[in-house]
Design a binder for these strands. Sequence first.
DNA 1: TTGTAAGCGTTATCAA
DNA 2: TTGATAACGCTTACAA
Lengths: 371, 371
Amino acid sequence: MVTTPTTITDVARVAGVSKAAVSFALNGRPGVAADTRERILAVARDLGWTPSLRGRSLSVSRALAVGLVIARTPETLGADPFFGAFISGSETVLSERGYALMLQVVSDEASEHESYRRLAANGRVDGVFLTDMRVDDLRPQLLADLALPTVVIGPAPAGGPWSAVGIDDQPGIVAAVEHLVALGHRNIAHVSGPTEFVHSVSRRDAWAVAISEAGLLPGPCIAADFSAQDGANATSALLDLAEPPTAIVYANDLMAIAGMSTAIGRGVEVPAQLSITGFDDAPLSAHLQPALTTVRTDVVGWGRAAAIQLLALIDQVAGPEIDLPAPEFVIRASTAPPGHPGDPGDPGHPGHGAPSKERRGSASILHRKKS
Amino acid sequence: MVTTPTTITDVARVAGVSKAAVSFALNGRPGVAADTRERILAVARDLGWTPSLRGRSLSVSRALAVGLVIARTPETLGADPFFGAFISGSETVLSERGYALMLQVVSDEASEHESYRRLAANGRVDGVFLTDMRVDDLRPQLLADLALPTVVIGPAPAGGPWSAVGIDDQPGIVAAVEHLVALGHRNIAHVSGPTEFVHSVSRRDAWAVAISEAGLLPGPCIAADFSAQDGANATSALLDLAEPPTAIVYANDLMAIAGMSTAIGRGVEVPAQLSITGFDDAPLSAHLQPALTTVRTDVVGWGRAAAIQLLALIDQVAGPEIDLPAPEFVIRASTAPPGHPGDPGDPGHPGHGAPSKERRGSASILHRKKS
DNA sequence: TTGTAAGCGTTATCAA
DNA sequence: TTGATAACGCTTACAA
C-alpha cells in the first residue's frame, strides 16, 4: 500500500472531469458547479489524493518555504535559547499556511552570503528571516539584489529598505538600570555583545542613557562576544579595576551566569557585594544560586509575528499591525543593595534559597515595519 | 537586473545546443563532447544560470531535502545544546550534496505524527532524522508505512527495521560512576530523564550496572524530565532522604546545574559534601562555580555521520562505516572525595576558582547501522 | 555525439 | 460552466 502515487489526472479521470476542474474544485474557486465540486472532492478523498507540492511549486513559481540562515558556531547556537523559541513560534504560523522552514547553519559571513545565494538561485525559499543584524550589514543589499523578501528580526537601523519585526530590548535594559539605581548602586558596569551587532549597540546605548538620566556617570563598559568564556573574562577585568563596579548589566544570560560564577569564584558575594542582571531569561536562570535577575521577552510570539510579516511580504499584501507583548523585567535574587561586604561566612546565601516569588516590572514595546 | 529568470532553454539556445546537452554537461555525464561541454558550462556561467530545483525536483521525483521534526517545548529546546550542534554537523554534509534541511518544531506526539505525514504526502523531504527515540515508539512504523528513509539518532533498541547512528552514552556514564567510586563514594544517586526515552533508560542502566560492578548497592534513582525545574526538584528529594547520597549522576547538564544550585542553596557544599556529574558539556558548564564534571560527546561529528548515513539510505547504497569519536569524560571541580562536611565558612570555595586544567578520560564508542 | 520529444503534476488560458 | 491545451524547468529515453 503506497502513499500517493495518485495524481490530479487520476482524480479527473475517475470523476469524469478535466484536470482544471479538479484544480478549481480543490482551491475552492468559482467556475465549477456546486455538485460537480462535491463529486470531485469526494473522489479526491476516496483516492486519498493530496496535490503534489512539487508540481504545484513548479507551476506557481513558489517554493512554499522560507529560510533561516544562522551564522553561529555550534556552541553559541546551542547556548542561545533564542532560536529554539523563535523557530517554534514561526512554525506555528508557517505550517498553518502550508509553508515549511529551511534551516541553514553556517560558520562565517562569507558562507552565509553563499548560503543565501544558493537558496535564491535554487528557488528553495520564497523569503527569509534575517537575524543578528550588523551595523554595516551587507545582507539586506544582497537579499534585495536577489529579490528575496526579507524580514529583519530584532532592532534594525531605521530607514533601510527592509521590514523589521522586533521587541525593543532597550526598555528591558533601562528597567534593569533603574532597578539597580533604586537599590542604591552608583557604579554600574555593562558587558555588551560585539559592537558589530545592532542589538549589542542598542542595549549598550540603553544602558548609557538610563545611567545618565539617573544623573550618574557611566560605569565601565566591556564588549564581549556573548559566550560564557568572554563573559567570565570581562567580569574578571571589571573586578580588577581600581574601583570595581557594584553592579553589572550583561547583554545576555549566558555571560551573566558565567560572570556570576567568576565573581563567586573570586570570593565576591553575589548579590551582597556585586549585583548582576542578565538578558533572555534562559531556562536555567531561575534555578541558579542566586537566581538571576533578568529581562524576559516573548520570543515565541516574536517568531509568530515575524512569520506573519514575512508571509504578508511574500504575498505582497499589507501585513497586519502586530502588537508584541512588552519585555518583562524579572527580579530575582542576583540583585540587592550595594555595599554589604560583610558576612563572608555565609555559605550559599541561604537567605536567597528558593526562587520564591518573582517580582516583575514590565517595559514598553516596539514594532517597526517597512513603511 | 534580475537574478535568475534564465532557464535551461536560454542556455541551450545561446550555446547553440539542445536542452539535453546542457543537462548532460551540467551533471557531468557522458554523451557530450569535451569541448561542447566546456562551451555549455561557459555560457551557463556567463548567464549566471543555476538549474531550478523546482523543475529538477519534479522531474526526478526527489525533494533534495531531508527533514528533522523535533517534539519539544520551546524551553527544553532552547536549553538543550544538542540540536544546534547536531544541525551544524549534518548541514556541512547536506549542503555539500545539494540537500537542505527542513525543520519542524511541534509540541506533542500527535502533531509530530501529523508533521511526518504532511512531509511525506507533500513530498517535501526524501528522508528524515528521528531523535528522542522512545521505548515503544510508533514513529518508526509510521515512517516505514510512509516509505520515508529514516535514520534514528542515538541509542535505539536493537533489531528494529531502522538505521541508527549514535554515540553510545553508556561508557560516559560508566566513567562517571567509576570516577566517583575511585574518589571513595559509596552512595551514588542518579537523576534520569523520562523513562519513556531510550537514552534515558540507557544512561540509567549504565549507572546501575557500573555501580553493581563496583560491588556497591545502587543508590536512589529519580526520573525527571531533563528540565532545570525537575532537576532541582529531584535534587531536593534526594537530599531529603534519611541517607542522602554523597554523589549524584545526572542525565544531562541542565539538571545537574540546577541540582548543584539547589544543593548550594540548601547550604550543602559542592563538591565537599556532594559531588555532581552532568552529561552534554553545555557551553556554560566549564564556567560555573564549581565547574561541572561532565561527559562530552562530539555532537557535530555525530550530525555529520547521521547525514552521511541518511543520504546513503536515500540513494539506496551501502553507507560507509563511520567511526564516531568516543565520548570524553571531563573532570572538573564539581566532584571530590566524599565526607568533608567541615569548612562551612568557606565562601565560594575559592580553591576551585578557575576551570584550570581539565583531566579527561575517554570512553568507548558505538555505531550501529541497519544490517 | 547530438537533437527530439515525452514525461513529472500543477496551474492558467481560452475556446466551446 | 466546462474541458482541451499549453506552459512551468528539468531529466531522460530514444532517434538521428
